[in-house]
Design a protein around this nucleic acid. Structure first.
Lengths: 342, 342
DNA sequence: TTGAAAGCGCTAACAC
DNA sequence: GTGTTAGCGCTTTCAA
């Protein structure tokens, strides 16, 4: 199939190709008659506009880059699902890139976005990333940049997150109200801001309720099912007394839960367990895993809406970056429910 | 920040811009000395190649379009995860589009892909779609097209799917070998081909092992957790005797499992339950839910690998379309394991 | 080993 | 209303 261009349509109709271009773009100065003719000819010849050419010439690509750690994580695929939907409805295409938590990969992806002349970039930062020049360069080029969930600290960039502090607070408060007193918190290395915030919420809740903050109950490390199991094993080895665990995210919490059950510890009677993220499995396991819901769909929508505003705003620089903070929701299930009401 | 082009680099070094272009593309005819100079100048000026221009000129976009029903479904996001990874490693960018199961939306997305001059398209067809001209047009333009999981019937297009017949057979055979005799199969209305195949596998396994095919044990309807519960309720109401359930997918199986446990039926001792899809929660629930793994990661990888071959092949037309059928894997967990070995 | 020049398909300023 | 013209930033002959 020969490539059809506006020149071919022009030849067909014996008019100039710029008239064709204008007709196809519904330019007001073109008569309805010619527009109709052009559209029919385009249809007949099976013409498709070349976005590469029009973007190159006009400087508008109507494409945005989305960078996430991994689509294999339901939280991210769910947010991308929401973003794609709204951006599409507004005429934008999505270039997708997964960092797989790697800094190098993230850098490469941002570079590809820049080379592709995207109209803007929405990103959630990789676990490994501690330097942010690649994000800074986006700003230098005056390209709209928006973070969701995982934010690069120190950069003045609009973002949509949930209130992780509040989430940490809610989870801990719930455990306290259920009568748990020695509450372990599993958290990751402190490079990722959201985990720091959850920790801060944990500490503040303890203090507000007059419980001591015991450093031996705060476990730093990683997050994964295995790490959760490992933490419980260590606590038992070191004979640390505890009666509840608040894990930074659900898979880790699930590991904790499994290891406790393996040790024949009764959950929630002896030990309570709560996670973070409200992954779908939490409702299906036994006992149900209490968690903090991260509002993935509202987050995707809020991110897309805010981003559209950024794309439309003339002076990105002068508009101070907005930070939308969504409220996390406490989800109580069997793993922490040992009192009739919380 | 002013846009930097190869012209700027050329001016900086007092050489022609075509030499710069060649140097940046590592053209063999350029001396190492100039290459080095050019690369340094590019770095210094913060040059970024304009992919729009190079793609327009060269006719190669190194971008592929991926069309899926929804990233909100873990099966699809998981496959996209795999495809993106491999295509990225091979230097391709991903344009992503969700049909949200709508025919119109799918058509629009394919059009966008065509306008963006993608090098190829990987798609899984929307539930609503029954006409396939938009896919046919991709082929007319000699652009590589590949389906995964959901195939447009009647088109000669390479595809990657799993063997759903075999999956149904494996699940049923496993139950039989575990000594279950009256095996219920829950299936959906027979419009979707994959469910028909699973049913066929179920029937054939029964017959091969000399068990009767009892119509009262085949339940037609829908798929969801609630539907699974409903099925069990009905079976009890109608006093249908059964000792195992093979559900068309995991959420339905989970509903069955929950309802059985609510009825104080012992699983797997009294009744065995197996699902299909191997959703992540299956390993986390108690008892673990046996299932048929759909090989999402291999499917993504196989799709990407086959697609790369298509992209490289000179004569798409003459190479007969391949159909890769992946083997489903039986995953045995607590919900069906009542004998020491299967 | 490098330079000159054409042109990918389109948009948009400037004519008339 | 429509045509003419000049590029957008690159790749790729053809020459030297």
């Amino acid at each position: 199939m020969k490539k059809v261009t506006i020149q071919d349509i022009a030849k067909e109709l014996n008019i100039s190709f710029s008239t064709v271009a204008r007709a196809l773009n519904d330019h007001p100065a073109i008569s309805e008659a010619t527009k109709k003719l052009v559209r029919e000819a385009a249809q007949k010849l099976n013409y498709r506009q070349n976005k590469l050419a029009s973007s190159l010439r006009s400087g508008h690509s109507y494409t945005i880059g989305i960078m996430v750690p991994s689509l294999g994580v339901s939280f991210f695929s769910s947010v991308v699902h929401g973003i794609e939907k709204i951006m599409n409805e507004n005429g934008y295409s999505i270039l997708l890139y997964q960092s797989n938590e790697s800094y190098e990969s993230e850098k490469k992806g941002i570079e590809t976005f820049l080379n592709s002349r995207v109209a803007g970039i929405i990103a959630s930062v990789a676990k490994e990333t501690t330097q942010y020049e690649h994000f800074f360069e986006i700003q230098k080029r005056n390209i709209p940049l928006l973070f969701f969930d995982r934010v690069a600290e120190g950069l003045q960039v609009p973002a949509v997150t949930i209130d992780d502090y509040k989430g940490g607070f809610l989870a801990t408060e719930h455990l306290i109200r259920q009568g748990y007193k020695r509450i372990v918190h599993i958290t990751a290395g402190q490079t990722i801001g959201i985990f720091k915030e959850r920790l801060r919420g944990y500490v503040d809740a303890l203090q507000l309720y007059g419980l001591p903050v015991d450093k031996s109950l705060i476990l730093y490390g990683d997050f994964s099912l295995d790490f959760g199991r490992q933490c419980v094993q260590e606590l038992y080895q070191k004979k640390v007394a505890f009666d509840a665990v608040f894990a930074l995210e659900d898979f880790t919490a699930m590991g904790v839960l499994q290891q406790l059950l393996d040790y024949k510890v009764r959950v929630p009677e002896e030990v309570g367990v709560i996670g973070f993220a409200n992954e779908s499995f939490g409702a299906l396991v036994t006992p149900g895993l209490s968690s903090i819901d991260q509002q993935t769909v509202p987050m995707g929508e809020a991110a897309a809406e805010l981003f559209l505003k950024m794309l439309r705003s003339e002076d990105l620089y002068n508009n101070l970056p907005k930070h939308i903070v969504l409220d996390p929701h406490l989800i109580v299930r069997g793993s922490t429910e040992r009192l009739a009401s919380s």
